[in-house]
Amino acid sequence: MHTALKVGAWVTVGKNCDMKYVAHNHDDIDFVFGNRSDSFEFAFNEHSLTRFVALATRALTDAKTMREAEDEAESAQL
């Protein structure tokens, strides 16, 4: 498995982006975004994936809170 973060690109994942994962074993879990001709892949081990899921859960909570605040502000202007 990978010992350090290696970055080679900046990526945006759109709402309709194809996503899949392949679990080779507990130490090699791959997430693939996009299609065969245009894809980006993350490789995690079990521990780093657990940490990422916790981080993503907090980010999703924050995003929902921001959307709700924006919706309330928009409703107040009507």
Rank of each mutant, 00 (worst) to 15 (best):
H2I: 09
N25S: 13
H24K: 13
D28S: 08
D38K: 09
M19S: 14
R36W: 01
N35R: 04
K20G: 15
A54P: 01
A73E: 11
D18L: 02
T61Q: 07
D18P: 03
M66G: 08
G14C: 06
L5E: 14
K15A: 10
A56Q: 06
T50L: 04
A73V: 05
T50R: 05
R36F: 04
A59E: 12
R58I: 03
N16K: 06
D18W: 00
F44H: 03
V7H: 11
G8T: 11
H24L: 07
E70L: 04
I29F: 02
A9S: 15
F33Y: 11
E72C: 00
K15N: 15
L78K: 11
T65V: 09
R51A: 15
V22C: 10
E41Q: 15
I29D: 01
T3F: 03
V13M: 13
F52W: 10
F33C: 07
D18K: 10
F31G: 05
T3I: 10
S75V: 02
K64Y: 08
N25I: 04
E72P: 00
K20N: 15
A76E: 11
E72G: 05
F52K: 12
F52Q: 15
K6F: 07
T57M: 03
E68A: 14
A63M: 04
E46T: 10
V32K: 03
D62W: 02
V22K: 12
K6Y: 09
F42I: 11
D30H: 10
V32R: 03
S75K: 07
E46S: 14
T61A: 12
F33Q: 01
A63T: 13
L5P: 01
G8W: 00
D28M: 01
N45G: 06
R58H: 13
S48H: 00
M19R: 10
V11T: 13
L49E: 05
T65D: 11
R58W: 07
A23Q: 14
T61D: 12
A23R: 05
R51D: 15
K64T: 11
N16H: 08
V11F: 02
A63Y: 00
R36P: 00
K20P: 01
V22H: 11
M66I: 14
E70R: 05
E46M: 06
M19P: 01
R36E: 14
V32A: 04
N35H: 10
D27K: 07
R36D: 13
F31L: 15
R58A: 15
F42K: 02
N25W: 01
W10H: 14
A23C: 13
L78G: 09
F33I: 06
T3Y: 06
V53C: 09
V22E: 05
V53F: 03
F31M: 14
H26E: 12
A69V: 04
D27F: 08
L78N: 12
Y21R: 08
Q77F: 02
L55A: 13
H24G: 12
D27C: 06
L60A: 10
Q77A: 13
S75H: 02
A69W: 02
G34M: 00
K64F: 06
M19D: 09
